[in-house]
Computed example of a mutant assay.
Amino acid sequence: MFKTILFIAFLFGTQLVSAQKEPSKQTVTIKTPNTCDHCKVCETCGGKLEAELGLAKGIQSVTYNEADQTTTVVYWTKKTTVEQIRKEISLLGFDADEVKADPNGYRERDGCCKGG
Rank of each mutant, 00 (worst) to 15 (best):
K25V: 10
K25Y: 01
K25F: 06
T29C: 03
I30Q: 04
I30K: 11
I30E: 00
T32A: 07
T32M: 06
P33F: 03
P33M: 11
N34P: 06
N34F: 02
T35Q: 02
C36D: 00
C36A: 02
C36H: 00
D37R: 00
D37N: 12
D37Y: 02
H38Y: 03
C39R: 00
K40L: 06
V41P: 01
C42K: 00
E43M: 13
C45F: 01
C45W: 01
G47Q: 08
K48R: 07
K48W: 01
L49C: 06
E50F: 05
E50W: 05
A51D: 14
A51H: 14
A51K: 15
E52R: 09
L55N: 04
K57H: 09
K57P: 04
G58F: 00
G58L: 00
G58K: 00
G58A: 01
Q60A: 15
Q60I: 15
Q60T: 15
S61P: 05
V62L: 08
V62Y: 10
T63G: 15
Y64S: 10
N65P: 09
N65S: 15
D68P: 08
D68F: 07
Q69F: 05
T70Q: 05
T70D: 04
T71W: 11
T71L: 11
V73S: 06
V74R: 02
Y75M: 10
W76F: 10
T77E: 07
K79H: 07
K79F: 13
T80H: 07
T81Y: 05
V82K: 03
V82W: 00
E83A: 10
Q84T: 15
Q84R: 15
I85P: 02
I85F: 00
R86P: 02
R86A: 01
E88K: 15
I89D: 00
S90M: 11
S90T: 09
L91K: 12
L92M: 14
G93I: 14
G93V: 11
G93L: 14
F94E: 11
F94M: 12
D95P: 14
